[in-house]
Design a protein around this nucleic acid. Sequence first.
RNA 1: GGGGAGAUACCAAAGCGGCCAACUGGGGCAGACUGUAAAUCUGCUGACUUUCGUCUUCGUAGGUUCGAAUCCUGCUCUCCCCA
Length: 376
Amino acid sequence: MTFDLIHTDSSTKARAGIMHTDHGPVQTPVFMPVGTVGSVKGVFHRDLRDDVLSRIILGNTYHLYLRPGTEILEQAGGLHRFCNWEGPILTDSGGFQVFSLADCRKLTEEGCKFRSHIDGSSHLFTPENVIDIQRSIGADIMMAFDECPPGDAEYKYAEKSLGLTHRWLERCFKQYRATEPRYGHHQSLFPIVQGCTYGDLRRRSAEFVQQFDAEGYAIGGLAVGEPAEVMYEMIELVNAVLPEDRPRYLMGVGTPVNLLEAIERGVDMFDCVMPTRNGRNGMLFTSEGIVNIRNLKWRNDFSPLDPALCSFVDSTYTKAYLRHLTLAGEMLAAQIASLHNLAFYTWLMRQAREQILQGTFSAWKPAMVEKLSRRL
RNA sequence: GGGGAGAUACCAAAGCGGCCAACUGGGGCAGACUGUAAAUCUGCUGACUUUCGUCUUCGUAGGUUCGAAUCCUGCUCUCCCCA
């Protein structure tokens, strides 16, 4: 994977670029829909490609390893062919599950012992086998196996955890270099900068990861409970250290406002479950602000979901109808909301890119943030 | 005509002398959700009050009792069975 940095905004750190993968180009800034088990919940690939205009999606090592398992994925010819997604795929390493499934795991130097959330069976993830699994999946971008500590972790724990993440990173790259792609297309490996909310640890981490001359770098361990301002501060600090000519990926973030703030600080890639999960739960992100579609006030509002009309559902269905479907528990409601939210996120990324290229980002962004913060 | 059962908040349904403004569902209203164990979870849902609390409620009219949704009597209505 190569990255062309096309333009950097003159007054902010915002960047526009293109990533070239063996599964096609990806313009940045980019939002990548999360398709944990090989499915972006509630959305057809066709709509993701042709309506949402997504160019890259995520899968998850932990989930795909447990089900359907690497054997099936290998028989299928990799995840791309298994789920029939022709664009690039990025897989998270399972590091986040080490955090989110904290109750059923045990961390050691070797790796992470954990119990399956599906059947309780015991498994071990190591930096080596997590790379192997991602080779079996065939992700265009593989993520290093890391520990993602909670947002309120104390310094001592954060420092210890960072040491472990760094040692694991060395093992990830060793395994990465000792193995080959299985399906003929190139696979990148992105290190993950950790360090919680401690500036010196973040800086240390951002410096450490560069020794691997990776094709891109990720910032992890943010939006895990710390205030947004602290997150922005960490991003700023890390991006000041990371190389300019590689894409920066802010993992798991976030709200539309988070995205714009991060873009302003030089982030190129994002993923988040928010558009799909919150969509399923009745929340719409729109160009005018946030809509809780279950609210009484929408009962007779027959206007489009979003005047920006970023998806076909926006002009096909009204707020009143979507409210009705949502309250009725219809699965179509979840599909419509998910599709809209994803389309809105990618629309927002295209807008940001356009503004960066035209040199108007710094004027456009604050007004947009103000709009996106509104609760309608 | 005779016999039996029952009437509880928006709906359904517990409660059967004080811990009851009243369990629990549903419905309704509102909130949460950030590298997906989430089509999930959390509140509120008689009135007034920010809280404490006060007031009015369990078909209806009386009665017993220190105290009643709960016990007694009349009335109204509903359902079931037999003729």
